[in-house]
Each structure stands twice: as structure tokens, then as C-alpha cells.
Write a protein that binds this DNA or RNA. Structure first.
Lengths: 339, 339
DNA sequence: CTGAAAGCGCTAACAT
DNA sequence: ATGTTAGCGCTTTCAG
């Protein structure tokens, strides 16, 4: 064997055909003499020829690579998302570059990097608050689990957060609660706002007042959840039910409730969110009634949208926005308020 | 603006220089007229020029991309690993393709794919049992958390599993135990075997017999851990201490112990493994004495080794094997055996 | 059905 | 200090 790597030329020579023919075999072009085809295949195998990725990508203008961007957060929601994306994309012959962003600025510069330029598409659980930098991206792109008011240009997969909170609030009211607290984080890139809106409208629809002391918006951390839930429980006129705005806060509320010697569904009612498999197990054990996010479904849906976009790249049909149902899992953490 | 994408030629024209000069500015070559440099930079900015990834990679023979291969397992060890790798690699200007393998065969064919051919290096938490297919890979490669007997060719990062188990066994013996059980999985790609060896030698060094009924090797699942630990506890002559072979089994053993109305460090002693942040929190709460894997350290070390290999690619200096210390976290789950 | 040749966008000698 | 030129390895007309 010679020095350098084996190219299509070497294979061609070895099989006594032209490079063009080898290329045709490689991309199984239909009308090739089957005897020639075999000979070429043999050459490929014997020389252990592997087509050059860069050359192929350059000349075809497609790389079979997609980029997934996630914020650098320890929530398993994202890791599960990535897993599903990788496996789904694999089915269609795509490889996945994973990138974690630490800030909006960093994300912007990454979006303008040559790796994004070479990718065929981008899946973005963006950290940006503004839509405009995203609209400059020329690649097919799908936003994951993000809500932008009035977005009509970029494809998007998210959950019916508004509906879920509305429904959850109603559910509590139907069970006789009228002192309902809601704990939520900031920085949800639209999702916190949607959940708050659902809660507010749920109360309003049933004529319940908005009580400032029952609404806490700060951050998504479990520790904060414990602290704020404790504060709620120690109020002179405490709520009879608490809604936790995401999975980590649910864990926090649960912990606070137990620290106070109370039982969810006994002395107090609560509704939570479960976003990962771990949550499901933990919350089921404690009978927490909650909304389940189907992470795999979100990922699959995003992949589907992106593939679709990539096929008909160019056509600028308006943004498709998929809003997935949140599954309401009724367990035992909601009871009638104890008087 | 014209139709197609903007190339280095367009920039050159716009700035009235040659493409070569633009290229020099791009790769900040030292001896360029600063006035020209500015003009070129302005052209780049104004035209929103982004260098073509494929062309650059092709001509330079380097892509700034590395591949990370992990088995498709839900253990957070791997997700944490990937996170660290991405962030570390980012510092050095590398992007990361993540690939999850479902079988050894699939991994082999992936290793021979053109994406691996284009990557500058590979980080592999391999699913392979044999070393030989890996030895055929021509790219710089580092194996993660894998042990291959007699490997002298491929760089490798792993933990001192043998030493940990030896130490743990001794620790129990020093506390007066002589009926020590060990629960471990199969399919550890060398790591199960190393831990078993450490346990065996630990017993032997102190003249304790190997008792078949105290040794269970099946799988790594928590459920199996619960089942087998229960079986151990219900033995006519039960062990006074149990060592769990990894994090999920530790969870299982803990659960079984509690199901039997026992307390770790009270009625029974146990030692576990904590491999992720979640484990640390959960085990700390229950006072589980255990060995801590520093996932980030493993990842960083692997990245370091790989970068090193990539720099001096070509030089076939023998394999470097880094074996990281496992941190023994002494808590309260080990006491003297109750007689 | 197959071969010849042009060129994708860039870098790296080699000139100047 | 900058321009000219020759490819990198592949696909894809265009001829035959």
C-alpha cells in the first residue's frame, strides 16, 4: 500500500474503471453493468476505501449533519432530548453535533460559525429572548420547547403550557379549593409566561381573585422550591393547594410539604410537573398528581419538522408550530381542602 | 446581492485583494499590511462571509470535529460525560459529534463511516468486548471507562476499580465483618471483572473464604439490585455487610435494606458507588459510605489525552493509560456487625 | 452504460 | 507583503 489515504481514484484504477463509475457505484446509480459493479465493490472492500466526508459534502452541498443546541443546564429534560434526537436522526442517516450554550451571545456567534453553515439543519432549544437573531439564520431550523409571542417565521415544537395550567387550576377549584398558590421560575423563554397566563385565566374563569401572596416567581431550582413552599405553608392564611411550575420545583414543594409533617393529598393538595423518567418514578411513589412532558415525543416531532424543512429547503412556507398535549396524570395528591 | 453563497472570492473582489490575502486575514497570518487587513475585515463583515467548513477541512486535512461514542444507556454517567467533553472541547475550538451505539456491530460500522474519517479524533466508551476492531481505527482515539486486559496500543482513561474494591473489602473486614456479600453486574467491559478481582483479593488477603452464596453477578439494574439484596438478607446465614458494584445497584441494595425494616449502618453495613450528582445527593441523605466517580475528571482527562494524541498524530508512542483514583466517601453505613 | 473534464471553496507553495 | 496557481476528493454534466 502506498503512503496517503485511498481515494476514489485508487479504487478506480484498481478496478480498471473511471472515478465516475466508482462514484456511481457508491451512490447506487441505477444503470450500471452488474459485472462492473461487482468489480468496483470488490475494489472498495479490498482497499478499505471510505469516501471522504468533506469532499462529498462540499460537492453535494449537503453534509448529513444536523446541529442540536441546548442550554447548559443539568435538567435531564435536555439529555433525554438529545438522546432521542440522535437516535431518530440516525434512522435517516444524519449525524448530530451537540452544542451547549452558556449565554445568548455565545449562541449567536455559534449560529454564525462555519459548523452551523455546514450543517443541513439546526435544532435549537435556544437561550435567546429575541427572535430576530434567529430569523437571520439561513439554515432550516426548528425551535424546541420555546414560545415566542407572534412568531410566524420559525418552526417550533412546544407544549400546551397555557392549557395545562388552566386545566390544573380548574381541577383544583372543582375539588373545592379557592386558596391556590403557584410557584414558578423566570427565564423560561416564554414557557413560564404561558403557564402563568393559564393559571391566571383559570382563576379568573371561576371568579377567584389573584392573590399576590400566593404567586411566587423566581427561579427553577429545587432549593428555591423548598424555601418558597415553606414560606407559603407558614403564611397566616396558607393556601390549601400548591401548583409547582416545573419538575424541579415540584420536588422542592414535595420536600417542603414533608418537612412540615404534611402529606400531599392529606393535609394539603398539590399538582406538579414531571419532565423526565426520574421524576415519573419519584412522583408516582408519592402519589403526586402532575403533568407529564413527553420528551421523546417533543424530540421526535422536532426531528420530523426539521427533516421536512430540509427536504423542501427554499420554500418559505410559514412557520409550523406544533403544540403537544401535556398529559394530566391523576394520582392522589389532590383532595378536598381541609377546613 | 447575487444568488449563491458568498465565497472567499467575493470578499477578495469586494476588498480589491486576492483570495489568498483574505485567507491570510482569516487565519491571522502575521505579515499583512494592517490597512489591508482592516479593509478585508470590513468586507468580511459587510458581506456576512462565513468560511466554508467543508472546503477548509478538506484542504487542511483537519476538521475541528471530534466524535464521542457512548452506549445507549440511561445512566447519567454518560450524559455528564458528554456535557463535560463538549465544554472542554469547546475551549480548544473543537465541535463534538455525539453518537449512541446500540450494539458492537453498529459501533464497528460507525467507526468505519465517513464521519469518523473526517473527525480529528474519537472518544469511545466502547461497547466492544474485543480490542482488535478498535486497533484498526487510524484516528487518534481514547477509550473511556473501559478496561482491556493487556492493552498496549490504545490510550485509555479509567478508574482504579481493583484498588477501590480491595480497599472497600478491607475496610469492612477492619470493622469486624467476615460475612461480606458483593453484588455486581455483567457486561461492564472489563470494569466488573476488575471490581470482582479487587473483592476477591481483599478477602483472600485477610484469609476470608470466598462464599459463593454471597457473590451475585447478573446485571446492573436497580430492580435486580433490590431482588438480589433481598435474597441475601433472607439467607439462613445472611451477610453482615453488602458491597454494591455500581450506583444503580447501590440504590437497589438501599431500597431492599429499607424494605426489610433495616437501617444501613444500624442493622447492616453497606458500601456503594456514586457515579452521578444525583447519587451523591441521595446517598448522602442516607449516609451511604461509598466510592465516588469523578465523571468530569474522567472526561477532562480523556479530552486531554486525545488532544495530545491529535497534536502529535503519527507518532505511535505506546498507549497511555490513566487510572483515576476513586474517592472513598466515609459516611455512616458501615458499623460493627451485630452479633 | 461509461469516461473525460470541469469545478465546489479553500489553503499553501511558489513567485514577485 | 501580496498575487498566482495548483490541487484536496468528490460529483456531475456532457460526450461518446
Amino acid at each position: 500500500m502506498k503512503k496517503g489515504k485511498i481515494t476514489i481514484k485508487d479504487v478506480a484504477e484498481y478496478a480498471s474503471v473511471s472515478p465516475a463509475t466508482v462514484s456511481r457505484v457508491l451512490n447506487d446509480y441505477k444503470w450500471i453493468n452488474s459485472e462492473v459493479k461487482e468489480r468496483v465493490q470488490k475494489a472498495i472492500d479490498e482497499l478499505h476505501y471510505v469516501p471522504d466526508f468533506t469532499a462529498k459534502a462540499m460537492v453535494r452541498g449537503r453534509s448529513q449533519v444536523v446541529v442540536v443546541i441546548v442550554p447548559i443546564i443539568d435538567n435531564h429534560f435536555f439529555t433525554q432530548l438529545i438522546n432521542t434526537v440522535i437516535q431518530e436522526m440516525k434512522k435517516y442517516g444524519y449525524y448530530v453535533v451537540v452544542y451547549t450554550t452558556e449565554s445568548a451571545d455565545e449562541e449567536c456567534s455559534f449560529l454564525g460559525s462555519s459548523i452551523c453553515q455546514m450543517a443541513d439543519g439546526i435544532l435549537d432549544a435556544t437561550s435567546l429572548k429575541e427572535l430576530s437573531p434567529l430569523q437571520n439564520v439561513k439554515k432550516p431550523m426548528v425551535l424546541i420547547d420555546r414560545y415566542f409571542e407572534g412568531n410566524t417565521t420559525i418552526d417550533c415544537v412546544m407544549n400546551r403550557n397555557y392549557e395545562a395550567l388552566y386545566q390544573g387550576t380548574e381541577y383544583l377549584i372543582r375539588h373545592g379549593h379557592n386558596k391556590i398558590a403557584f410557584l414558578v421560575g423566570a427565564e423560561g423563554h416564554g414557557i413560564a409566561e404561558e403557564r402563568i397566563r393559564g393559571f391566571r385565566d383559570g382563576l379568573q374563569a371561576h371568579g377567584l381573585p389573584w392573590r399576590e401572596e400566593y404567586f411566587i416567581q423566581d427561579c427553577w431550582k429545587t432549593k428555591a422550591g423548598i424555601r418558597y413552599a415553606s414560606r407559603l405553608l407558614e403564611l397566616p392564611d396558607p393556601p390549601t393547594a400548591i401548583i409547582a411550575g416545573n419538575n424541579t420545583l415540584t420536588t422542592g414543594v414535595l420536600e417542603a410539604v414533608r418537612n412540615h409533617g404534611m402529606t400531599p393529598g392529606g393535609d394539603i393538595s398539590m399538582i406538579g410537573f414531571e419532565e423526565c423518567d426520574e421524576d415519573v418514578q419519584a412522583f408516582a411513589r408519592h402519589g403526586i398528581t402532575s403533568f407529564r412532558l413527553d420528551t421523546s415525543a417533543i424530540a421526535s416531532c422536532a426531528v420530523k419538522l426539521l427533516l421536512n424543512r430540509m427536504e423542501q429547503s427554499g420554500k418559505r412556507a410559514g412557520a409550523r408550530v406544533e403544540a403537544l398535549e401535556l398529559n394530566f396524570i391523576e394520582r392522589t395528591s389532590v383532595c378536598a381542602p381541609s377546613l
